[in-house]
Design a protein around this nucleic acid. Structure first.
Lengths: 220, 220
DNA sequence: GGCTAACCGGAGGATTTTCCTCCAGTTGAC
DNA sequence: GTCAACTGGAGGAAAATCCTCCGGTTAGCC
């Protein structure tokens, strides 16, 4: 057995020479930024350029666009899960945990990234159980936050998980560059204030359902 | 003077045969939908297809992509202005006007469309005074709504015009198709509740500035 | 320090996408 | 009924994107 072999932890990340592993990471980060800014069809060459590596390196590590989307989606879901878990673990109550989670998801634009690559991820999810598994973990945790926050009377009672999910994916695009951090933060705070229990009028029906990955759609 | 000539109302719309005018309108509507869904780089052929006209027809009416973006942007700004004006005219007070305006902008996705094509519109705006003029009219009206709503004590005092502008451009993308109307509506209502005057904590600094079209950036 | 397997960048040809003109046929307005 | 205006889409030009291949470089181990 070669010295390098291992349990092969997260597929692709282990068993690489140090420089290769570093570049792989740079590529994923660049991909996340560009997917977010330009959509999932952004030229791979541009991703390579932003990562500061050659196009050859990108192709060596990710044989096709789907592999890259898969990796970027996995990294994103892992950050989201980590965000939800630390919030739940460290905040004093469910409302604060939910608030921290939403702030993080919106400021890191994790939800927005999700909304951009999710269509492509759907195909991957059916094939890749680990993606489904992480996604499920996040859903369970957020649902738990909501349930407890309701019980505590901190979250307005008519808010449903689907509402939170939709808010997470809200995308702020501004002419040209990325929107100003601080300006977005203000809007997030306004939304959070709208979520607090109070004497608001009841929300209309029709919350978005959230749940498992849908079964295969019929081919067009 | 030919019988067809006229004051040439909105450029390009008048002096066309009925079928041509109808097709022109269909093209603009298709362009708005696709710009919103796929970004401002969507192939013109796809726009023609969705409009149900040939590619030749599209090119005859809009010599290049910019002309189409210009027309779509103009139509969008006109609807926004109309929305702001009717809200101001027909609602009993500034808060209700602002609420109606925001609901409309978010549900019609006018702000989102704006955010998609605004980068391209910027160039057009410098050249096209009528775009600047409409845009300015909207800004003035919304600022007036905010000012009055503040005076009435209905809008939380730390909300600034830039916050409203940013909320307008919020984009809800969902995997695949357009997001469900009713689900989005709920989130809009939550945001509106966050805007109402109450005992919320103060917003952090850093509201987005809004204003005139910026001067020409230096060429890269 | 020296060795070598693993890694790197990017030139460049193949492929796909997008553009945009042109013209034979159709239609609305008078 | 006439005809100027309009229509759709075929198809070649141009541009964008993909993706392989290989000479040169480097990390890791002795």
């Amino acid at each position: 057995m070669s010295k390098r072999s291992s349990v092969a932890g997260r597929a692709g990340d282990a068993e690489l020479r140090a420089d290769a592993r570093r570049n792989r990471q740079l590529i994923i980060e660049a991909a996340q930024q560009l997917f977010l800014r330009d959509g999932a069809d952004v030229p791979l060459e541009e991703i390579a350029r932003r990562a500061g590596v050659g196009i050859g390196t990108l192709y060596r590590r990710f044989p096709d666009r789907n592999a890259l989307i898969h990796a970027a989606g996995l990294a994103m879901l892992e950050r989201l899960a980590e965000l939800a878990e630390s919030a739940w673990r460290e905040e004093p109550d469910a409302w604060h945990a939910l608030r921290r989670f939403l702030r993080g998801a919106l400021e890191l634009r994790l939800g927005a990234l999700q909304s951009v690559i999710e269509p492509r991820l759907h195909a991957a999810m059916r094939a890749a159980p680990e993606l489904r598994e992480i996604r499920q973990r996040i859903i369970v945790l957020v649902e738990r936050m909501i349930r407890h926050a309701h019980q505590d009377g901190a979250l307005r009672p008519d808010v449903e998980p689907g509402d939170i999910a939709l808010m997470m994916t809200m995308h702020v695009q501004l002419p040209g560059a990325a929107p100003d951090e601080r300006a977005v933060r203000r809007v997030v705070e306004i939304m959070l204030d709208g979520l607090r229990a109070g004497d608001q009028p009841e929300l209309p029906d029709g919350a978005m359902p959230i749940g498992a990955v849908q079964p295969d759609p019929v081919e067009p």
